[in-house]
Write a protein that binds this DNA or RNA. Sequence first.
DNA 1: CCGACTCGGACATTTTGTATCCGTGTTCAC
DNA 2: GTGAACACGGATACAAAATGTCCGAGTCGG
Lengths: 159, 159
Amino acid sequence: MKISAGVEWALHCCVALSGIDRPVPAAKMAEMTDVSASYLAKQLQALSRAGLVTSVQGKAGGYVLTRAPEKISVLDVVLAIEGPTPMFECTEIRQRGPVGAPPEECRESCPIARAMLAGEQAWRSALREVSIHDIGTEMAGNISRERMAAMLNWIRPAR
Amino acid sequence: MKISAGVEWALHCCVALSGIDRPVPAAKMAEMTDVSASYLAKQLQALSRAGLVTSVQGKAGGYVLTRAPEKISVLDVVLAIEGPTPMFECTEIRQRGPVGAPPEECRESCPIARAMLAGEQAWRSALREVSIHDIGTEMAGNISRERMAAMLNWIRPAR
DNA sequence: CCGACTCGGACATTTTGTATCCGTGTTCAC
DNA sequence: GTGAACACGGATACAAAATGTCCGAGTCGG
């Protein structure tokens, strides 16, 4: 039930990318977030496989968002890192054991699975409502304008 | 992000207990669900520590629910097994690194943490709405009356 | 054409979840 | 009262997954 730490890193990286119009190398983002560069690279690869970012190789390379930050939800990032498999998987316990129900009485899905699925869908809906752009806007509102400019300038790689 | 298998077992056990007015030994529930008896015992201990069930020792002992099944939500069981810690924990990345924000600009909680928290609260609310009694009723509606009676009779220990 | 910088996947390490065992205490039967 | 069987409880191995690290392939800029 615990969410991997990479999700938090990936979200911060996406927010940073949303403010820069040039490729940002993974090493820079690792320094920014102060986490292991090698492991952060793994998470960025996952984002790339999920199609959220694209990688530019070579000397001035790095990562770039593939679409506008308004079009990337928090859920997208979470699923890219954690994988799309649902958190609860029914093993059909009701059909097992000496008093298991026969298949013809199990046409409806198990009520337990239904309840857990409803919970997960509520969770996904809430995360789908928030975009990377929203996060960036809220963050910008909390800090001074000068600091924001300084941050972006530090992140932006020299051309 | 994955939910432990023990949650599903514990939910089935609670539903079974809600239909029996006598202590049910852990071994019986293990046979019913066809899972490892020793490991299921561990989950039942967690339910006991959380105060959802109480254990009766001795020859005709076993486990009994501590309150009416209407008063036990699916969320109660999930938290008892998985632990009460939230699935997302903010590590204040925004304050770290060379361009970290100073504490005085971080009076509001991080927008990323807020979004993840909102998602988890939506999930918890959905699971809180469903009780063990609800699950039992739905299950009874799916199978024939005779099979239900046979199941309860098989589970009920001889006095 | 060369050099330097980038990503990408293959390889260790640590933590968490899974599974099992035997000891301790209690109850029932005689 | 006594004994023995039964049930829970925690301490102990095993396995899988998350975490962390490394070096090689590919690509762009000069």
